[in-house]
Amino acid sequence: MAKRIALSWSGGKDSCMALERLVAAGYEVALLVTTVPQELNRTFAHGEKTEMIEQQSDSLSIPVHFIRCSLNAYTETFIEDLVQLKSRYGLDGIAFGDIYLEGHRQWGEEVAAAAGLEALYPLWCRPEDSVKLLTAFIELGYKAAVIRIRKDVLDDSWLGKELDQNFLEAIQQQTVCPLGENGEFHTFVWDGPLFQYPVRFTYGQILSQDSSQRLEIHPLI
């Protein structure tokens, strides 16, 4: 019997590629898990509206659970919700889309262990192999765009860029991780092999934050 797992879901390329690999390996992804600040209907990871995550969930036919937490109690609330989800969905583990940052992996493994779950890292690789993951994402036919950048490493011209062959070539000319593993850029995925239909959205204004620029995206119903 296939293991039933949850997937930590940001709405971007890494979590989507993790889903692709998990499905190909025969895991049953029972639900997506996304953290949301208690006061906002936006994700912790990329600042996206929860409606956009819900549209991805609908297209993927995988339910999403929003963990509503504060920054101060982030880990504790994450564990509490995982314990409840483990019972409700009969989970065996939880998967994360981290690629090579050891601190992120340690956190995920500790959280999973506290909830009595196995921690899975389907994308884990060496930093120098990250470009291969980006290449695979593009060649598989997934569609994504840059919606957030770090001001200190990329400029506004990268916002709204689609992840295609031109992007693959251009990002390798920058002094950043090709997959943005250090937060250099974040993406939103709207279509691909596992999607039943494209997620429809429109671009809004660019919002400046302390260390990043974020391109608003709005759902089209």
Results as ranks from 00 to 15, higher is better:
residue 101 L to C: 10
residue 91 L to P: 02
residue 68 R to D: 03
residue 170 A to C: 12
residue 153 V to C: 14
residue 76 E to Q: 11
residue 138 I to D: 08
residue 123 L to V: 13
residue 100 Y to Q: 07
residue 91 L to M: 09
residue 47 G to C: 09
residue 132 K to N: 10
residue 71 L to N: 02
residue 113 A to I: 03
residue 125 C to V: 11
residue 134 L to S: 02
residue 63 P to F: 08
residue 54 E to R: 12
residue 114 A to S: 15
residue 138 I to R: 00
residue 63 P to I: 09
residue 100 Y to A: 13
residue 32 L to C: 11
residue 72 N to C: 03
residue 110 E to S: 07
residue 55 Q to F: 13
residue 135 T to F: 00
residue 167 F to G: 06
residue 49 K to R: 14
residue 106 Q to G: 00
residue 170 A to Y: 00
residue 120 L to A: 04
residue 95 A to K: 05
residue 58 D to E: 14
residue 50 T to Q: 03
residue 116 G to V: 13
residue 47 G to Q: 05
residue 33 V to S: 02
residue 150 R to Y: 09
residue 129 D to L: 14
residue 146 V to A: 10
residue 76 E to D: 07
residue 30 A to V: 14
residue 38 Q to R: 09
residue 157 S to A: 11
residue 165 Q to N: 06
residue 61 S to T: 08
residue 131 V to G: 07
residue 76 E to H: 08
residue 110 E to C: 06
residue 164 D to G: 03
residue 57 S to F: 00
residue 90 G to I: 05
residue 154 L to P: 07
residue 48 E to G: 03
residue 93 G to Y: 11
residue 62 I to K: 00
residue 122 P to K: 05
residue 72 N to D: 12
residue 122 P to H: 15
residue 102 E to F: 01
residue 31 L to T: 03
residue 101 L to G: 09
residue 167 F to S: 05
residue 163 L to Y: 01
residue 126 R to A: 07
